[in-house]
Design a protein around this nucleic acid. Sequence first.
RNA 1: ACAU
DNA 2: CCATGT
Length: 201
Amino acid sequence: MSNAKWYVVWEGKQTGIFTQWEDAKAQVHGHPGAKYQSFKTKWAAEEAFRVGPNSFQDLRSKVLPDKNPNSIAVDAACSGNPGVVEYQGVCTDSKSQLFHKKIEGIGTNNCGEFLAIVHALAWQKEAGVNRPIYSDSDVAIGWVKQKKCKTTLEKSKDTAPIFHLIERAEKWLEEHPVKPKILKWLTKDWGEIPADFGRKG
RNA sequence: ACAU
DNA sequence: CCATGT
Ligand SMILES: [Mn+2]
Ligand SMILES: [Mn+2]
């Protein structure tokens, strides 16, 4: 495999995951019954190594957690970080857009991800619905749970607009019960979150 | 390291 | 390669 960067050795002089073929080959050479394979990503290699040489191919279909299609997905994008921030929310199943906001001034990726979740909460309350909210951001999910945006962003004239929105979002969280489940979107298993802006390619 |  | 975060 031309792009392979990770080599799993399940049986050999030493087992493990190697980043160089020279190292993997040293475990396999002259070792009858050695089992090994190359992978393109670290994640694939780790999963394959953990599950063993015979079952790694079907592990995903057995263990892959299911996503709830009756849900909302949010995501933020940033032009520079810190930079110009926007976020949006979509229906997970259809990707139809529910809301979108481009924020004045500059902010961080994580501030955008945080505001996206809180916007989804407020939007749902306004719309009278209660569906799970998916975010791919551990940071933002944690901040919403704490009702506190722990950003390191410096305060300045350019960051004043987003800090105002953050303050408003934190206030909303303090004043309203958080009813919808806020769930981690498992990007490695499911691919990019449906609300993604698709600019990383 | 993990998640962006 | 840079940056934001736990
Ligand atoms: Mn994201
Ligand atoms: Mn994205």
